[in-house]
Amino acid sequence: MNSLALPRLALTAGEPAGVGPELLIRLAATPLAANFIAITDRGLLERAAERCGVDVRLLDDDGADIQQRPSGTLRVRHVALDVPELPGQPDPRNAHHVLATLREAADGCLSGRYAAVVTAPLQKSSINDAGIPFSGHTEFFAEHSHADVVMMLASPELRVALATTHLPLRAVSAAIDAPSLERTLRIVHQALRSKFGLAQPRIALLGLNPHAGESGHIGHEEIDTIIPVMDTLRREGMQLLGPMPADTAFVPAQREHYDAVLAMYHDQALPVLKSEAFDRTVNITLGLPFIRTSVDHGTALDLAGTGKADPSSLIAAARMALDLVARSKSS
């Protein structure tokens, strides 16, 4: 690629009946310096633009590099819907379309056709209703790329990685074993160095149990698993704090001591992050052989078709992807 060319960012629209297509249109209307390639149905984007009342020029993606992109232009790699969308009402018949867009984005990143992928929200239940087992973007990209990955959500003020992702709460404890926890910490540590430029990242681990187990009186996972893994990696030079009680780990006096938090399960820390920076938080998949960022919210079916969905999180995800692409080129 020409060194002066804009980064080619693949955009997936997610659930056709959700707000994703409208968010892509709003993103295209910004002056962000990126060559956006929407991987979805062209007609879906045309209808989304009409609902938003935004004048966007859709161009077929010919693979060519560009050095500037006038705001209001969006290149498209057409992947046909199976049935027309009905805003607010996901149709499982479009599950294959959604998965095809993800495969195209992943394959394009792996081949170097795209510099990164930015994903809009999808409806997991609709894909599962089509008879296709599906846990989420993170797990899909991990399997497709044969990679061990970690989900991280980051705002300008806070980074939170997850030891487990989309699991029932009753399954979390069994999923946190020494090998998986050590693997997760190594991925997070490496990503903080390579993607965020932190030479000696400080990672705080949350305990699984209330009060981080309180010396074994409220659970033994900290003593049996978390602390031994931390001790092993500390001997290698990693700066690890904790395990910390989750109910006090995010107070201002604690935050100044770490660069990122590793939470043991999805809802342990993400409510804190989203409650204070919902429109500025970005979902990043660490450990992939390519850059992937996403919004921090769902399909907002109640807003779909109204043209009123807030694109702030998708814009933040695109900005983050551009920052990571730039850092990868300079490292």
Results as ranks from 00 to 15, higher is better:
232 T>Q: 13
232 T>H: 11
232 T>S: 15
233 L>Q: 04
236 E>T: 15
236 E>A: 09
237 G>T: 12
238 M>D: 01
238 M>H: 13
238 M>W: 03
239 Q>H: 15
239 Q>E: 13
240 L>C: 10
240 L>R: 07
241 L>E: 06
241 L>H: 01
242 G>N: 08
244 M>L: 15
245 P>M: 11
246 A>Y: 01
247 D>E: 12
248 T>K: 02
248 T>G: 07
249 A>C: 15
249 A>K: 10
250 F>Y: 14
251 V>L: 15
251 V>A: 15
252 P>H: 08
252 P>D: 14
253 A>P: 04
253 A>G: 15
253 A>L: 09
253 A>R: 13
254 Q>C: 14
255 R>P: 09
255 R>C: 10
256 E>S: 15
256 E>F: 10
257 H>W: 09
258 Y>Q: 07
258 Y>S: 12
259 D>I: 06
260 A>C: 07
260 A>I: 08
261 V>F: 01
262 L>K: 09
262 L>V: 02
262 L>W: 01
262 L>G: 04
262 L>S: 05
263 A>F: 10
263 A>Q: 12
263 A>C: 14
264 M>C: 02
265 Y>G: 00
267 D>V: 05
267 D>F: 04
268 Q>G: 10
269 A>Y: 12
270 L>R: 11
271 P>R: 04
272 V>G: 05
272 V>E: 12
273 L>S: 11
273 L>D: 06
274 K>G: 04
274 K>F: 00
275 S>V: 00
275 S>E: 03
276 E>M: 14
276 E>G: 13
277 A>G: 08
277 A>S: 14
279 D>P: 03
279 D>R: 03
280 R>V: 00
280 R>K: 14
281 T>W: 04
281 T>K: 04
282 V>C: 03
283 N>L: 00
287 G>H: 00
289 P>C: 02
